[in-house]
């Protein structure tokens, strides 16, 4: 690895346009790429840009390589993880940004799920909240009634359905 692994012009060019590429473009992948393809792309990009492959490069080329390498890792971490990838794809679609920070990508998925569990309509959320409060006091019957009310506003909320089913199970078991 005494010699640079890649043409300096290419490093230069990529460092310049890197911020305008999405992760798929950066890794040279099609949007629907499989996990195996993603991994292969990560390996082959790393061969070119990993700091170990460019130890003897002059500045600023060496520093540019390192920047690219770090972005490649970021892209790999997002795309190889189905949950992160989903959050990222949604972001691409909305056109808001070409990057997503790892901790965010993880959170945003959980956020969505949590939000869904709490309800999509104001009324749904209100009754769900009351059900939770009732549950905390150990008042199972009130919890069930509140969830039934919540369901009248959000009949298709899977989280609500599951919660109501579970409450009914518990009620049955308690008898």
């Amino acid at each position: 690895m005494a010699q640079a692994a890649i043409d300096p012009h290419e490093i230069h060019a990529l460092a310049r346009i890197m911020d305008e590429l999405d992760y798929y473009q950066l890794l040279n992948l099609k949007p629907g790429a499989s996990t195996a393809e993603i991994r292969r792309a990560f390996h082959s990009s790393s061969r070119s840009f990993h700091p170990d492959a460019n130890r003897t490069l002059e500045e600023p080329l060496r520093e540019q390589c390192e920047r690219i390498s770090k972005r490649i890792t970021e892209a790999y971490c997002v795309l190889r993880d189905p949950r992160r990838r989903k959050a990222y794809d949604a972001r691409l679609e909305s056109g808001s940004s070409l990057r997503i920070q790892l901790a965010e990508a993880r959170q945003s998925h959980e956020e969505q799920r949590k939000a869904e569990r709490r309800g999509a309509t104001a009324q749904g959320r209100q009754f769900h909240g009351k059900a939770e409060a009732a549950l905390k006091r150990g008042d199972l019957a009130a919890a069930i009634q509140n969830m039934q009310m919540a369901m009248t506003f959000e009949a298709n909320n899977a989280g609500f359905k599951a919660m109501l089913a579970e409450l009914r199970e518990r009620q049955k078991a308690g008898r």
């Binding site: 700091p51 390192e66 920047r67 390498s69 770090k70 890792t73 970021e74 971490c77 790892l102 901790a103």
Partner: peptide, 15 residues
């Protein structure tokens, strides 16, 4: 947490 364990390196994250 900003970068979880077992994340490949080198990496950079900005919050």
């Amino acid at each position: 947490p900003v970068i979880e364990r077992n994340t490949p390196v080198p990496i950079e994250q900005t919050r």
